[in-house]
Design a protein around this nucleic acid. Structure first.
Lengths: 337, 337
DNA sequence: CATTTAAGAGCCGCTGCCTGC
DNA sequence: GGCAGGCAGCGGCTCTTAAAT
């Protein structure tokens, strides 16, 4: 079965190819009669213009690129959803690449972005190499960093104050009288992880007698969380932390389960704070207190900024849109009322 | 900044355009010397071939299309992940469309698939119109239905025995002595929902004295689950069901929470069975017994079959690959050991 | 003269300028 | 002057032709 092209439509409607193109893209330039006939022919033939040809001719793909660290983490899927919403209202679609904690994959996606000529990119790099790549990418197309600020103040960004978030989480535990803290994070190479830890350390440092030990899991997810939780539950009670700060709920939901399963009472013996405040946090084994990141709004804000850059309505200016943390307090730290 | 094209590479390497193309795509057709020089020029210039131009000439996009009902449900993101894995090893990428329980969106994605010339499509339609569209799409490109079998036996499919799954869930509750069952589902228009209900009804019908009432939520997600759970908890104890069958864990995780919050003991007063066995099921407020669907494997199997069709290694033959349900039994039905 | 290797031209489908009625 | 149509070209790939060994 051959593809129906603009030629076929033209023949069927009894007009020229250019008139078909005009009728479809700029109907005001062409008589109503032709518009009608072309519409009919299009419907009858089921003509759909070929994106590749349009793009080649016009030089625009109508696509934004976006990379995220781990799409199975609901935080990131919400981030993407927000970006898609905003891009959609600007008439663009989003090509999502899941870098999956792997810088090779990340680079491959950047290359793909070049191949398909995305008009701009939303990048949430996870390590140093990613940052360099992002900066290089930014030489050819507009780039907005997501969930991360650019230290050099060159790239625009939509981010979150992770140091404050980490501090807030630890401070909350300290305020509840916990002093032997543990920090459970995803890969240490991920900047967000390091910043949250740095924040937590600040709170601990300001509190005489408090301390914090960090452990990093190779990946996040409920399964990894369970392991970490059981590991902590297995510690002798006097060495065991009495408060846990985690880098995300994706992990923390599992940790709570692991603790309970190991016979540890939450929050009585160990209180725990999650991060991101994903939907599942509220329904965890013990509902999770969590540092709220408004994922959807962040995704939306980033895409909106990027749309401005792409359309030329704004110039890249190292604008850093920053969201401030809030704490959703639930039973995992304060218990049930 | 102008794009660097194949011309620029040719000039830089001191060879013709065709030699560049050959060196890149069929190195054996060209002398080693040229391959090396072209490689160098490509690296120095940072040349990346333009997908649109290749596609226009060659007629292949290297893309598979895939539609899913609700990407925020971890079951579907796992399905997608599996498909991406398999497609990747076949050298293809997956363009994912989240139809979001909306048939207009679904149609838009199908049109997009035409515009970008996807070479095949994985479709998980959710209603009658979707099925028709899928069949139409299948006239122009290979299509494999996912999570759904084709009644007419025309389209290939990778699916799951949802009637058996629903029956298994209800039977499990009945075996535990529960007779006043409730069925909580997503939209009734979704076929999977209806089949699971039909299966549950079969089990109930075979059991004198048992009954089941169905309630449908407009969407799934922990939030909706909480509402349903609280609603049930608010019922007078003698009207309240003693067993609940749900259509997915995405919803069920919330239901458990809602029940507990409403002061209902799980599973003592109300036992509940989820569906999908997503990662979060094991760490729910009360770990969820769930009908396990191997999402990743299903996605992988579907993509592998589609790759065969796309490459011409196989003909569409209404092949129905069917996965059988297994029950992951956890505390939400049998309590803690 | 046969055979390998490189250069050249045209085309894929569509748009947008420009001409002509 | 408003409106329809002809034509070139976007950037690669591939077939054909030409040259060199």
């Amino acid at each position: 079965m051959k593809r129906v092209g603009i030629r076929d439509v033209a023949r069927r409607a009894g007009v020229s190819m250019s008139s078909v193109s005009n009728a479809l893209n700029r109907p005001e330039r062409v008589s109503d009669d032709i518009v009608v006939r072309v519409r009919e022919a299009v419907d009858e033939l089921g003509y759909v213009p070929l994106q590749a040809a349009q793009q080649l001719r016009v030089g625009r793909s109508g696509l934004l690129g976006m990379t995220v660290i781990n799409i199975t983490n609901p935080f990131f899927s919400d981030l993407v959803t927000g970006a898609e919403d905003a891009a959609g209202s600007g008439g663009l679609r989003v090509l999502v690449g899941n870098s999956d904690d792997d810088e090779v994959k990340e680079r491959e996606y950047f290359e793909l972005f070049g191949r398909v000529q995305v008009e701009g990119a939303l990048v949430s790099p996870f390590g140093e190499p990613g940052e360099r790549l992002a900066r290089r990418l930014a030489r050819s197309i507009p780039v907005v960093l997501v969930d991360r600020v650019d230290d050099d103040g060159v790239l625009d960004s939509v981010s979150f104050d992770d140091v404050a978030g980490g501090r807030m989480a630890a401070q909350h535990l300290i305020d509840l009288g916990r002093t032997r803290l543990a920090f459970l994070g995803g890969e240490e190479g991920v900047r967000q992880v390091r910043e949250r830890l740095a924040g937590a350390r600040q709170a601990v440092a300001a509190t005489p007698g408090a301390r914090i030990d960090a452990t990093f899991a190779p990946r996040t997810g409920p399964g990894w969380g369970i392991q970490l939780g059981e590991m902590i539950a297995a510690m002798p009670a006097d060495e065991r932390p009495d408060g846990i700060v985690t880098t995300n709920d994706h992990l923390a939901c599992g940790v709570v389960h692991g603790l309970l399963r190991g016979g540890v009472r939450v929050p009585d013996e160990v209180a725990i704070v999650g991060y991101d405040d994903i939907d599942f946090a509220a329904v965890a084994a013990v509902p999770l207190t969590s540092v709220r990141q408004p994922a959807r709004e962040m995704g939306r804000a980033a895409a909106e900024r990027l749309l401005q850059l792409v359309s030329g309505a704004a110039e890249p200016a190292g604008v850093a849109i920053r969201f401030e943390p809030e704490l959703s307090v639930r039973a995992s730290t304060v218990g049930y009322p």
